[in-house]
Structure formats: C-alpha cells, structure tokens
C-alpha cells in the first residue's frame, strides 16, 4: 500500500497533472486554430466583438442568472464552482507540496474556510445530483456522464476532508489518502476529454457561435459531401 501511495503521489500525479494542463492547452490551441480557419473561409468578416465579449463576461460572472431563471439551481451551481476551484488550489497542504517541488508557494486559505468550502462543495454537488434526477426536463437532457460527474467530484473532497479532520486509524487514513489522490488524478485525466473541458471551451463558445452563422459559400455542398449524400435533394 505504501508503494502504491508513493507511486500515486509521484509518477502518476505528474502524469495526470501534465495531461490536465497540456490537454486543456491543446483544446484551446485547436479551437483557436479552427476559429481562425473558419474566419478565413467566411465572406463576412465582421464580428460583433462588443456583444461577444459582454456575453463571455456574463458567463464568467454569472450573477444575473441567479436573479433570472432558476435562482436556486444557479446559486447552487455558483457555490459548487467556488468550492471546486478554491479549495484544491488554495489549500495549505497542497501549496506546501508545490513549494517542495517548484520552490514557491502562494497564500493559503485559512483552515476553517477551507473546511467550510469543502463541505459546501460536497453538499452542493449532491444537491445538484438529486436535482438532476428529480427535475424531468434536466433528466431528459442528461447523458450518463452528467449524472456521474457530481458524484466523481465529491470523492476527492470527501476523502480529503476526512484525512484533514477526522482522526482515523493509520490504515483507514492511508486508504482515504489513496482514494483522495487516485480519484483526483482520474479527474485530472478526464477533464480535457469530457464535458469538464467547458472551463476552456465555454469562453470561446460565443465567438464560435457567432462565426458559425457566417456560412462560407458552397457550404451546402460541403455539408452534403460530408454526409455522403451528394446530389441528394436537400
């Protein structure tokens, strides 16, 4: 078990973290590349930059959503995201691990705040999960991974919380720690390849949507070709 923990903390962590960073970077580059290529093909090169940037900003700061549609769901979601992002990045224990490798750290959250945010993240994740099951509209739109993700995300938070707070026996502690590390690593690896990649894709989505409406000439033919229905009546 100790060897496994060591492996999970060393090589496996380096692998998954590299996949996370590089994978997101790759998506970003490929997207921008695609946008540029698409832009080059269109005739109308005017883009409503102002509107696009306002929409993107709104996505980043989703305060208006809370007051407009589905206030409970929106506020839960915001809280969930706050916990999800802040705790792993600003936890003292994580920062000191980084300090040991790269030589520099950053200010940490106080322990109490970290605990509250962790519990908040766990609670909101479970609430969102139940919400998805209960609500008919959302369960109709949901895929399997939509149900799975809140549950997967809860695992590292729960185990991390146990490790940091509860005085458990050494064996249990190790199991908890291993689960914590491994689940976080699985999440890291999955992020660039699943819907969690929205953290990178979403800011661009407004732009993509805008450009997507500017069909290049002969698009219809290309669509037919790609669908293998060349010559068929539209």
């Amino acid at each position: 078990m100790d060897a496994l923990l060591d492996f999970a903390r060393g090589p496996l962590f380096r692998f998954s973290f590299a996949i996370l960073v590089l994978g997101l970077l790759r998506i970003l580059i490929l997207d921008i590349w695609g946008i540029i290529e698409a832009l080059r093909k269109t005739d109308d090169k005017k883009i409503p930059w102002k509107l696009v940037s306002i929409r993107t900003l709104e996505w980043f700061v989703p305060v208006r959503k809370v007051f407009s549609n589905r206030p409970i769901y929106s506020s839960l979601s915001i809280l969930f995201h706050v916990g999800l992002l802040l705790v792993p990045i600003f936890l003292y224990a994580h920062i000191s691990l980084w300090k040991g490798t790269v030589g520099f750290g950053w200010p940490a959250l106080p322990k109490l705040w970290a605990d509250i945010l962790t519990l908040l993240a766990i609670g909101t994740a479970l609430a969102l999960f139940t919400g998805r099951i209960i609500s008919k509209t959302s369960s109709f739109l949901s895929r399997k991974q939509d149900y799975l993700w809140p549950l997967i995300l809860v695992i590292p938070f729960l185990t991390g919380f146990i490790c940091a707070n509860a005085g458990v026996s050494p064996v249990l502690y190790r199991i908890c720690m291993l689960t914590h590390i491994l689940s976080a690593e699985i999440i890291f690896v999955l992020i660039p390849f699943t819907k969690i990649a929205h953290c990178i894709i979403m800011p661009l989505s407004q732009l993509v949507a805008t450009i997507a409406w500017k069909f290049p000439p002969e698009t219809d033919e290309a669509v037919c070709t790609t669908l293998n229905k060349k010559g068929a009546p539209v």
Binding site: L12, R14, A18, L22, R26, I29, S96, W98, G100, T101
Partner: peptide, 29 residues
C-alpha cells in the same frame, strides 16, 4: 487532433517516468 493528442500523451508519460528525486516534492519548508 490525433498528432496533438499523441504529443501531449507522450509528454505526460515522459514527465511521469522522469528520473531523479529532485522533481519529486521535497515536502514543506
């Protein structure tokens, strides 16, 4: 898409199997 995937995959594996204790966390100060 495929080439970039291959590239980041091998890059990450490369990081994972990098020798040397220096790149492992040295713990807290």
């Amino acid at each position: 898409t495929k080439y970039s995937l291959a590239f980041i995959l091998s890059l990450s594996i490369g990081f994972a199997i990098m020798p040397g204790s220096k790149i492992q966390s040295q713990g807290v100060a």
